[in-house]
Computed example of a mutant assay.
Amino acid sequence: MLIGLAFHCLPASAAEPVPQALSLHRKSVAFPSEVVTASMGAGGARVTGSWVNSTNGPAVIHRGVIYQAAQIVPTGSMMVKPASLVRRVNWRYSFLTPVPHGLRAYLCNYVRCIALSGAAGTTTAFDGDSAYSNFSFAFVIDGNGGLSPALQGHINYVAVNYE
């Protein structure tokens, strides 16, 4: 799979910066040759499935600045159809260094960003959005100024259940 690993840093302009929905242009994705394409069953029954993927988390070096991680692209044993709809998303993020007070985390797709309640969980906030969408985590730490030491991102993970 080919994924761009560039991290983006968005300057915060408000007292409480919140990331915006992402402009998620499809990255180049090479699916393995053993991928099986899902098809509708007899009678037009809906095909359900899930895809799971992860990226490295960003380093957060300044308070009050939104740091967006690399986009997480759909993958899995079945190719996701563009018409597939998200039903539930499980998430998990972690850091290699201690998390300072005031961390706010968000999960974003092409339509919206949602505030996350903790380092792991499940949401139906993306219900009805295309399952053929990239996701990205965004992090901001309340306040201003540099962090010492920097908050070093580790793994950002999503599992997207769709039909």
Score class of each variant (00 low, 15 high):
Gly143Met: 09
Arg87Ala: 06
Leu116Asn: 02
Asn56Gly: 11
Ser39Cys: 08
Pro100Trp: 10
Gly128Glu: 06
Leu24Tyr: 11
Ala14Met: 14
Phe139Gln: 02
Lys27Val: 06
Gly57Trp: 04
Ala30Tyr: 15
Tyr106Gly: 00
Arg26Pro: 10
Pro11Lys: 04
Val60Asp: 13
Ala125Phe: 15
Ser54Asn: 10
Ala30Val: 03
Ser50Ile: 01
Ser33Asn: 08
Lys27Ile: 05
His101Tyr: 11
His62Cys: 09
Val65Cys: 07
Leu2Gly: 13
Phe139Asn: 01
Asn156Pro: 09
Gly64Ser: 10
Gly118Leu: 03
Val52His: 03
Pro100Glu: 04
Leu24Val: 07
Ala120Val: 09
Met40Pro: 01
Ile72Ala: 00
Gly76His: 05
Gly153Ser: 04
Ile114Ser: 10
Ala131Arg: 02
His62Lys: 08
Asn161Arg: 09
Leu2His: 13
Glu34Cys: 12
Ala38Tyr: 14
Met79Gln: 08
Tyr110Gly: 11
Ser39Lys: 06
His154Gln: 12
Ser136Gln: 05
Ser33Arg: 07
Ser13Trp: 15
Gly4Val: 04
His101Met: 11
Met78Trp: 14
Glu16Asn: 12
Ser13Val: 12
Leu85Ser: 14
Cys113Met: 03
Ser54Met: 07
Pro17Phe: 08
Val86Phe: 15
Leu10Glu: 14
Gly43Ala: 05
Arg104Pro: 10
Tyr132Arg: 02
Leu103Met: 03
Asp127Ile: 07
Ser28Phe: 14
Arg46Pro: 09
Ala131Gln: 04
Thr37Lys: 09
Pro17Val: 01
Gly64Ala: 05
Ile155Cys: 09
Ser39Glu: 10
Gln71Glu: 11
Leu147Lys: 02
Thr123Asn: 13
Arg46Thr: 07
Trp91Glu: 00
Val140Cys: 05
His25Gln: 14
Ser117Thr: 05
Gly57Lys: 02
Val47His: 15
Val73Pro: 01
Asn134Leu: 00
Ala21Val: 02
Val89Ile: 06
Gly76Ala: 06
Leu96Asp: 11
Pro11Tyr: 14
Gly41Trp: 06
Ile61Gln: 15
Tyr106Phe: 07
Tyr67Pro: 01
Met79Val: 04
Ala120Ser: 08
Ser28Tyr: 12
Asn156Ile: 00
Gly121Val: 01
Cys108Val: 00
Ala83Ser: 15
Ser136Asp: 10
Val29Leu: 15
Val35Thr: 11
Leu147Tyr: 03
Asn53Ile: 00
Leu147Val: 00
Ala125Gln: 12
His154Arg: 09
Ile141Asp: 10
Asn144Lys: 12
Gly44Gln: 05
